[in-house]
Amino acid sequence: MSMTVVKGLQSEIFVPITPKSVWAPVTKPLSEMTVALATAAGVHRVDQERFNLAGDFTWRKIPNESTEEELMVTHGGYDNSDVNKDINCMFPITRLKELAAEGFIKACAPYHAGFMGGGGNIEKFTNETGPQVAEMLKSEGVDACLLTAG
């Protein structure tokens, strides 16, 4: 039986293509891992420049010693009311510190990353921001990264 193929025929339904996963294997138990946070929720320190709500591909380096009061959110793409009440809703830094203290993980990374997802210059995100954050995490010897987004 021959296939019935019409050349150049396209579905009128937009079918997005899911990219193949990128996969880094886990090589050690959680109790031996230094863990970093990375969030697309627009988290940054109060004394750092705010994100541009119209779209912003830049990111903020957030020191682990930052307290909840020193952190805030600039993001126009989701309801900020919960995260304004408690930064841990999107950036569970206090929870991560507690887990490090109880030995569930080995340590918190010295620096975490905050950026503003939800659109903007995707090309810059993919080719610049992503690799920059990855490079920082790599250079500080992080074993795993917990993200919040989507």
Partner: peptide, 12 residues
């Protein structure tokens, strides 16, 4: 972002 971090060998 998650993919960029994985691509340098850090599981996420």
């Amino acid at each position: 972002m998650q993919r960029a971090i994985e691509s340098v060998g850090i599981p996420t």
